[in-house]
């Protein structure tokens, strides 16, 4: 990989400052970025590690819901969110493998917005709020297609706040090689309705399956989505599955997530 300066600020303010320089790039665990750098697909002049910032770490329950610091590793979320938001904790506990979960962070995952990542489904499915150093962004506004988000240049995610649903579950069907989601569905049942978010399937990245949301809001049972169909249009087709297969999985996994929700 190309060389760069490595800095590890201990406050958000210092991180923002470091990232304002030319060619600076944030590193938040690096489980995706590091392999990218090895391939020389990115060429930052400064890499700013965000994992040394104490105020960006931790899981805590508050009035707005469950807040997770952006630099919190998946393994910590899996452990510490288990009581307050078990569906989300289980999602975090299923990302990558244990070593990846010890380094990868929620902020890093959301900033990258890989179309097959798990967290975007949990965040969109929960209707969470992404908190940055500048503003708060609703999940519905945040995800803007594969690897594209509402973040501005130099903007840092500092945390995510999740309203906690009555019931939720995430069901992932692994891509057999990478074990990212070939398709993954997050279902969350709130008092005001159901949200269904799908990752891995669409060329447009994570999306809400609104027909299923309507059906499940009326009747939160797997049978409620039985009559629905998912269009394969705009679904990803690759050697691990056709668009039709992914479309099919969306429905199967939604039913399973509904059945598993607790």
């Amino acid at each position: 990989m190309h060389n760069f300066d490595f800095v590890k600020p201990s406050s958000i303010a210092d991180a923002v400052k470091a990232l304002s320089g030319d060619g600076a790039q944030a590193l938040s665990g690096g489980q995706t970025l590091t392999p990218t750098l090895k391939q020389r697909l990115a060429q930052p002049s400064v890499l700013v590690s965000l994992t040394g910032i104490a105020e960006m770490k931790g899981v805590c329950m508050g009035a707005d819901g469950l807040s997770i610091g952006a630099a919190t590793p998946h393994a910590v979320v899996a452990r510490e969110a288990a009581k307050d938001y078990p569906g989300l904790a289980a999602l975090a506990g299923g990302i990558g493998d244990p070593a990846v979960r010890n380094r990868g962070t929620i902020g890093g995952s959301l900033a990258n917005n890989d179309p097959a990542a798990c967290y975007p489904a949990g965040v969109l499915g929960s209707g969470a709020t992404i908190v940055t150093n500048k503003r708060k962004i609703a999940a519905d506004d945040y995800f803007q297609g594969m690897f594209t988000t509402a973040l501005d240049e130099g903007e840092i995610i500092t945390g995510v706040t999740f309203p906690v649903p009555q019931k939720a579950a995430y069901v992932k069907f692994n891509q057999p090689a990478s074990r990212f989601a070939l398709t993954g569905v997050f279902v969350a049942k709130f008092a005001g309705g159901v949200r269904v978010a799908v990752t891995g399937a669409s060329n447009n990245g994570v999306f809400r399956w609104t027909e299923a949301e309507a059906a499940l809001s009326a009747n939160f049972a797997a049978a409620a989505v039985e009559g629905l169909t998912v269009s394969p249009e705009d679904m990803i087709g690759d050697l691990h599955g056709t668009p039709e297969y992914r479309a099919h999985l969306v429905k199967v996994l939604t039913k399973r997530a509904v059945a598993a929700a607790h």
């Binding site: 057999p176 090689a177 990478s178 074990r179 690759d238 050697l239 691990h240």
Partner: peptide
Amino acid sequence: LTGSYMDYAMPR
């Protein structure tokens, strides 16, 4: 197309 463990599925 299967030039890494991201796409070449090794038994785990």
